[in-house]
Amino acid sequence: MELRRSFYQYLMTQRNPNSHDEVAEFANNAFFDQTFPKQEKDYDRLSRYLELNGNYLPSMTVFDLAYQHYLDSEA
């Protein structure tokens, strides 16, 4: 399956400053992350980046959930 858009592009569709949903909060925080890999589509590369730089992410489970939603949205 060829992913049409990057994970970041998908994630930005989930932004909602008034929401307390974990994925929305992840998206809100990623928006302010100046070094987020905005063109990346690969799970492993994104996961590695977030493990080292995603101190705003309460748990990698939130990333896993968001990434699964990303894949589902691209299907």
Rank of each mutant, 00 (worst) to 15 (best):
M1C: 01
M1H: 07
R5T: 11
S6E: 05
Q9L: 08
Y10R: 04
T13H: 07
T13Y: 08
Q14W: 06
R15F: 09
N16W: 12
P17V: 14
N18H: 13
S19P: 02
D21H: 11
V23S: 03
A24K: 01
A24E: 01
A24Q: 04
E25S: 13
E25M: 11
F26P: 01
N29A: 07
A30Q: 01
F31Q: 02
F31R: 02
F32Y: 15
Q34R: 12
T35W: 04
F36Y: 13
P37Y: 03
K38M: 14
E40D: 12
E40N: 13
Y43S: 06
R45N: 14
S47Y: 15
R48F: 09
R48T: 13
Y49K: 05
Y49E: 07
E51Y: 09
N55E: 06
Y56M: 02
P58K: 00
S59A: 14
M60N: 08
T61W: 08
T61A: 10
T61Y: 11
V62E: 01
F63G: 04
F63K: 05
D64Y: 13
A66Y: 05
Y67L: 02
Y67E: 00
Q68Y: 11
L71V: 12
L71M: 05
D72P: 00
S73G: 03
S73F: 14
S73W: 12
E74D: 09
E74L: 10
